[in-house]
Structures are given as C-alpha cells and as structure tokens.
Design a protein around this nucleic acid. Structure first.
Length: 829
RNA sequence: GCCGAAGUGGCGGAACAGGUAGACGCGACAGUCUCAAAAACUGUUGGGGGGCAACCCUCGUGUCGGUUCGAGUCCGACCUUCGGCACCA
C-alpha cells in the first residue's frame, strides 16, 4: 500500500499541473491542422468501417448523445491503433419536423435553424476530441445530398418498389401529416409528439417493403443482438395459414365469395359467424335494408375513432349484424355476417371466420351477442359440456365430419389440403408488416420527384433535372397539406414527356428515407456525379460495426435493410445487409430516470467538459456500467474519474528514483512485468468486447500498482518506463488529449495516436503462482500461495497437510477430495 | 396477456467456462496538511458474533424449492423493475 503521498515526490516547480482546459484545445487544433484523422482508401491496411447512428439536428448534444458517440470513438481509436484503416464518420440527420415547428414558432427559416444547430453541435462534437474526418461530413438537407435521395426514389419507382395508392393512413393531427405504421406507438400515439393518431383516407406514396418481408426475417450472416432480431421478427409478423372462400349468393352483389384468412383451419367446422372490418368493401353491398341504418352508424363511428381507442384490448367488443349470411362450404352451414372493429381492414383479408369455441375474441363477441358456440376441438377429458372460456390449445377434433378423431395439429394440415383440393381456398402467408408510407405533408424534407400531367399521368422527374429543390419561400402554415402546394413557382411545371403544363408532387419524403442510405454516402461524400462511387463502396462497405440505440429496431434499421436489398437487386451494390455487426448501447439515466426535458434532469456535457475536460467525461461515461446496459450519471462519481486522470498525470511525470543496480529486486521486476502483460491482455480483451468499465478498472489497478512501485523503488528505470509507455498507449483511445500531452512530455515523438497498440507476451501474462483455495465440505478454510505448475498430487497432499485444515477435519475420515487445477481443493469428510 | 433483458454492500458495478462473492470507483467514517475550511493525500468500510492480537466463527447475491463435493452462475415455480409488442384472426 502507498504510504507517502505521491505529491510529495513531485517537485511543484518542475512538474506542470494537469490542466485539460489548456491541453485539450491545443491538441485538437494540432490534430486538425495536421489532418491526423484524414481518411484515405487503399494504403494496404485492412479497412474498418465503424459507424454510429448520426444525430438529429435538434440543437444541443446532451449526455445521451455522448454516451452513444464517445465510447464508439474510443473503440474506433482502438481499432486504428491495431493497424486498421478506420472510417468513423459523422454527419447530421437534418430534415424533419422539429425544424419546421421551430420555424412556425419563432419565425426562423428551417434551413437557418438547422444550420445554426449544426454549427453548435459540430463544436460540441469537436470538444469531445473524436477522430472524425470532417471532410466527410454528410448533411441530409443539403441539395448535394438530397439530390441522390430523390434519385433513389426514382430508382425504386422504376423497380416497381414505389407506388401511389389510396389507403386509410395514420394521421397525426398535431404534426399535420401522415405517419408510417412504424412511427405510431403501441398506445396509438404519434411517435414524435404523443398526440393520438387518427385515420384518413389519402392517396399517398408507399415503398413495397413487404416484397422483402421474408428476406428481412432472415438475419443469417449478420451479428446482431438477439433482442433486435426478435423485435424485427415480431414486427414483420409472418404467419402461415389458409385463405378460405365463404360462398355468397346475394341479389345485386357480383362477388360470389368472401375471403377470410385463418391460421386455424382445423376449427372451420366451429364457425358460427363471420366478421368483416367496418371498412371492408363488401359491407355496403351486403347490408340488408333493415340493418342499413345501424350498420352505417357503426361504420362512421369506428372511422372517427382514434387508433388508440380502436386498438384498445381493454374495450368491450362491439359490432352489428349486416342481415346477410354466407356459406361454409365444408359443412353447408349458413353463416351470419357481422361487422366489428376488432377486425382490422389492413391485416389479412379484413375478414375473419369466427370460431367462438376456440378463439378468445370470438368467444367474447359471441357471448355478448348471443351467438352459438360450437366445440370442434375437444380439450383433454372434455365431457361435452359448454365451455366457460375459449379453448385455444390443441386437442382432438370433434363435430368435424370426416376429420373427427384427428389431433388438431394434424387436422390443420388435413383441412388445409382438403380446402385447396376442393378449390375452397388455398394455403397462404400473411404478414403484419405493411408497406412503408413515405409521403409527408410537410415542408422540411426532400421533395418527392414526381410530376402529374393530365395527359401522361404520373411522370417521374428526369434524372438530369434533379435535384427538385425546395423553394426557400414557402409559408409554413400547418394546414394538413404540404406547404409546397401553395408555392406556384414550385407546383407549376411542364410535363417532361409532353411538355404540357403539369403539377409537381408537393409532399416530401419521410426522413427515414434520408437515413436509409447515408452510410453509403460517407464512402464517397463528395461524389457529384453519383450517389457514391462503386470502388469506394467496394472498399468500405458494408459497415463493420454499427452502434446506436435499440429504439430504431423497427424503423431505421428495418428501412435501411430493405433499402440495401432493393438497391442490391438493382445491381447498385453487391451486398444485401448494410450492417455486419450491430451493437446497442444502453441508456444513460439521471436521478433514476430517463433524461427528459419535462423531468428537468437532462445533463449537458458542455459544463463538465469546461470544468473537468473531455477526457474525464469520455472516461467517466465508459465507467458507469456495461455499455450495453447503460448507467447512471452521478455528479459525484465523475470527480473520481478526474482524480484518477490527475493521478495518472502525476505518476507519469514524477521523477522515478530508480535504485542502483545492486538494489534492483529481480522478483519484483518479474512480478511487475507479469502485471503489465496481464493488464495489456485484459485491456485488449475488454476493448474488443466493449467492456469499457472493466477495462478502466484494469487500468486503475495497474496505476495503483505503479504507485506502490514508485514507493518501493525496487525496479530499474527501463522496467518503470516500459510500464508508463504501455499505460499511456492503453489509455490513449479513452483519454486522447491527456495521453498525447504526456507522450510528448516524456520525450516521445508525436503522435501517440499513430502508435501501435501494445502487445502482450503470453509467457509473461501467465500466472506463476496462484492462490489455492482449500475447502472442507465446500467451505473455504484456508488459502495457500503455490506455484501455478503444482501437480495435482502435490496440491492434494499439501492441502491435507495444512494445520487449519487438519483442525477442521478433526477425527472425521476423508471421503473424497476434489481438485480444480489452479483454483481449489475441496475435502469432503 | 405475449416476447426480451435484468434483480449482488449505503450507491454505480466486478466475478472467464459451476470453484476465494463484493474487483474498480463513488459515498461515509477516521487521519495528514491548515488558524480554519476546501482541495489533495493516507487508512477503514456487507451484516452479526468472538479474540489483546495476526485472526477466527457465522449469515449473506429478489423469494421458495431442486441438482451438485461445491450455485450469484445450472433447473423448476414465483415476485419486482425496465424495454418491446399487443383484438394480427
């Protein structure tokens, strides 16, 4: 243990004080002037593309941003020191509603607001000391970028992956725009502003992401967290089942069938009614005159409901009878047709066959409206009595004609086959995933490059005319229609095909379109003639390591995968997965809660950087807990990190009093070397596994040991210096400024960040002696330091000879002895 | 309701692969320095009990069971917290 204060060893006049305020801007300036972090292709080094989800231009980086960005930077620096050619770029997700809302609220143009925010964020980012090559910065709202966003839209259109359709869509009354399904919360609220979302029938642009549903379910070959893969699988919601046609025979109704989708064809003999979604196109035609008033009332009421009300599972079932019936072709039953809002028009066929005996929802509905319940799957030991609740498990088929007696799992297949043979329906697969709605009725986004001509119909803007520029002079009235609609100079154009006057599409694109390809642009940020250069893509892509929050599982991460697969099929890239490895960092919380403006617990890094320095903030972020789990921001604890960096400073700069050769202790020297190599090994492994908290703990233990050695003065100068050099190199990714300064002050050539990561020698890292634990009946009774090479025989013998152990054994005979090499001996008596 | 992650000192967290629970840090307490305080540094710090003492005993990783020579770690049931999905037929 340390006995004398370190400070007493340091001459205050000779040694500079650790002053991050001075050294951090100094080195940042020098690195920038020297273009130390400039990224260039093809110098023979292996590439490493490490990407962090780029920030939205909200104006201020809070500590959550740093928690995403700083450890990524540390890891990228580590890879760089390992000899990789590292691309670790930064940019800004710059289109989006908040800019427009700010414009409305404060009278600033969204462009001004955004660019001002970027400037502020850029200087905040720079204060962190990252290895970003600012020449590769990408800003999605710049015409040079969104020109290519539009170009990709045209490519998707050409490929038949972009289409325009009228559909009931999610509408946010507050944002005054439509939203994609992924942007509506489970509560039915807008993901951005938490306003309950309503429904509107609108003609909108969609991307055919559903065409890739099966491929998106396949995560083979990519190293992603299980959790995210499961979230995507649930979201895509593939279910295999049967589409069954129920016969219709109604005067004046041309359709002779209703299509229903079911995953339980084994229950078809238990159908006692059919339910259509209120929006189902057949509703109006099938409803009989005496039920018309009631049905119309119900349809208009459900149309007005918010998504939240509509989807609430708490709510009691409602519905009305249409007066019409259809035919169950398997048993000739006449089946009454109801409408109810628990059936969704957007899933399956918008119609379900209701089997109250074997579906909880149908059971509830049948009970309420007095519809018969017919058991067709017998629960084990069933006596033919009425069910008190739906039986949804497998069982034995009954009341099902020729299928009686079959186990229901088998019956499922048998009936599916029977239905397809008879032409009553076919096997099919349904997905929960819907096509991606990308139109937005707002100003601050990339205009959809389409033109409507009264002669030629929908005509794409020719590639040569891109970009379709956003007019700077739009009014941002939130009217529910795109502000671009009211800019005549924008709207009015000539048809590219027939030259007649035509109108431009005035909706803009969902900003998730902008972020679906930004990772490609970083490879060729200045390419003017293309979205990217194939050879750059070939060199850098796919992204080796993508880090960011898990909240994007079903939005950005799904969209980007779809986009990549789509352009792969166009032949633009050769890979189908953009991000080979994904890592999700946890959330940093403060005062036990997630940081939020409303709670007033948002921590801003700037004040800590100003007070303690960026190195302290970087290191502290990584010390609060495992990166994937997040951690708690603690104002006290960060002081501890600053103290430790100060101790490193003093330790490195102190004048080590090496002993004369005769007083050097070879044992200590050896043991210190072992500690050093063990530390290099630990730190390397922790870096590789993103275990930054334990990596720093290992470095702290190492500095504690060095402080002891500074007192003991038993190792020679070379050994001491070797330890200090390694300490600085191991700490360089975490505290780039401090280590650069100390590297210089200890007489090394600039720059530490161009040095190689230290290597360990396995022979030195290996333990020479181990503490052998001796247990009696599983309880630790003694510990003995033994050579690591001790033989099993010796260990057993030695254990039984220990005085304390003999005392514990007493007169009892030894029954068994367990030996775990290098760990313990357990004596059972 | 379903899916996923996690429950360890006063606090954040360590513990590879079933083998010393509590590394590292914060806080607290005591001390050094100081007129004093702050800062810095040094020491102690899971609970209970015993010993003049180096130490010793005992309980202890959300709860209850189980497997094992041995369980924070594996198995079963449950409780709590946090994420995601939720009338998806």
């Amino acid at each position: 243990m340390r006995t004398t204060p370190l400070n007493s060893r340091i001459c205050p006049l000779m040694t500079p004080k650790y002053n991050p305020q001075e050294i951090e801007p100094k080195w940042q300036g020098k690195w920038s002037a020297d273009r130390l972090y400039e990224v260039k292709e093809g110098d023979g080094r292996k590439k490493w593309y490490a990407l962090t989800m780029f920030p939205y231009t909200s104006g201020d980086l809070h500590i959550g941003h740093w928690y995403a960005l700083a450890p990524s930077d540390v890891h990228a620096r580590f890879k760089r020191m390992q000899g990789y050619n590292v691309l670790h770029p930064i940019g800004f997700d710059a289109f989006g509603l908040p800019a427009e809302n700010a414009a409305i609220k404060r009278g600033i143009h969204p462009h001004t607001w955004t660019m001002r925010n970027i400037e502020n964020m850029r200087s905040q980012l720079k204060s962190m000391g990252p290895i970003y090559d600012w020449d590769r910065e990408v800003i999605t709202c710049e015409p040079a970028y969104y020109k290519w966003t539009q170009w990709f839209f045209l490519k998707l259109y050409e490929a038949g992956l972009a289409y325009r359709a009228r559909a009931p869509v999610n509408w946010c009354p507050h944002c005054q725009t439509v939203l994609a399904n992924e942007q509506v919360l489970a509560t039915g609220e807008c993901e951005r502003c938490n306003t309950p979302v309503t429904r509107k029938d609108l003609e909108q642009w969609f991307f055919r992401i559903t065409r890739y549903a099966d491929e998106l379910l396949d995560h083979d070959g990519i190293d992603w967290p299980e959790r995210i893969k499961i979230m995507q699988k649930n979201w895509i919601g593939r279910s295999e089942g049967v589409e069954i046609l129920f016969g219709l025979d109604h005067e004046g109704v041309p359709e002779k069938e209703i299509r229903v989708f079911t995953t339980r064809p084994d229950t078809i003999f238990g159908v006692t009614f059919l339910v259509l979604a209120p929006e189902h196109p057949l509703v109006a035609r099938l409803t009989t005159p005496e039920h018309r008033a009631e049905v119309e009332k119900y349809v208009s009421a459900s149309r007005q409901q918010t998504e939240r009300d509509r989807l609430s599972t708490e709510k009691e079932k409602t519905g009305v009878f249409t007066g019409a019936c259809c035919l169950n072709r398997l048993n000739g039953d006449k089946v009454p047709i109801w409408i109810a809002d628990y059936v969704l028009s957007s899933y399956g066929t918008g119609a379900v066959m209701a089997v109250p005996a074997h579906d909880t929802r149908d059971f509830e509905f049948a009970n309420k409206f007095g519809i018969p319940v017919k058991v067709v799957i017998a629960p084990p030991g069933w006596l033919g009595t009425d069910l008190s609740e739906a039986y949804v498990e497998p069982g034995t088929m009954v009341n099902s004609a020729q299928f009686n007696g079959l186990p229901s799992e088998q019956g499922k297949e048998a009936i599916a086959d029977f239905i397809s043979q008879k032409g009553y329906g076919k096997r099919t697969i349904t997905y929960r995933l819907r096509d991606w709605l990308i139109s937005r009725q707002r100003y601050w986004g990339a205009p959809i490059p389409m033109i409507y001509c009264s002669h030629c119909g929908i005509v794409p803007v020719p590639e040569n005319d891109l970009p379709v520029l956003l007019p700077p002079d739009a009014e941002f009235k939130p009217t529910g229609e795109s502000p671009l609609k009211y800019v005549p100079s924008f709207v009015n154009t000539a048809c590219p095909r027939c030259k007649a006057p035509a109108r431009r599409e005035t909706d803009t694109m969902d900003t998730f379109m902008c972020s679906s390809w930004y990772f490609l642009r970083y490879a060729s940020p200045h390419s003017a003639g293309a979205a990217f250069e194939p050879e750059d893509i070939k060199f850098w892509l796919p992204v080796d390591l993508y880090t960011g929050g898990a909240e994007h599982a079903n939005m950005h991460l799904l969209y980007a995968r779809f986009f990549t697969k789509a352009i792969r099929d166009m032949g633009l890239v050769k890979f189908g997965e953009p991000f080979t490895r994904l890592f999700n960092q946890g959330t940093i919380i403060s005062q036990k809660h997630k940081m939020s403006k409303s709670r007033g617990n948002v921590v801003t890094p700037d004040t800590y950087v100003a007070e303690l320095g960026a190195d302290t903030v970087r290191a502290y972020m990584m010390f609060v807990g495992p990166w994937e789990q997040g951690g708690e921001w603690n104002d006290q604890a960060i002081g501890g990190m600053h103290r430790w960096l100060g101790r490193v400073w003093n330790l490195v700069l102190q004048d080590y009093q090496a002993p004369p050769a005769s007083e050097v202790n070879p044992e200590t020297q050896k043991s210190l070397r072992h500690f050093l190599h063990k530390t290099i090994k630990r730190v390397t492994a922790d870096m590789e596994g993103f275990h930054f908290n334990t990596m720093l703990a290992a470095l702290m233990e190492f500095t504690n040991r060095l402080a002891e050695e500074a007192e003991a003065k038993a190792v020679d100068r070379a050994a001491w210096q070797e330890c200090l050099d390694a300490l600085l190199l191991l700490l360089a990714p975490t505290a780039p400024h401090l280590t650069e300064e100390l590297w210089m002050l200890t007489g090394h050539p600039y720059s530490i960040h161009q040095r190689r990561w230290p290597a360990w020698n396995e022979g030195f890292a290996r333990e020479e002696s181990v503490t052998l634990v001796i247990q009696v009946n599983g309880k630790v009774r003694d510990k003995v330091l033994v050579p690591a090479s001790i033989s099993e025989e010796d260990a057993r013998k030695m254990a039984l000879e220990q005085e304390k152990i003999r005392a514990h054994i007493g007169a009892r005979p030894v029954q068994r002895v367990f030996y775990v090499p290098g760990r313990l001996v357990n004596i059972v008596v």
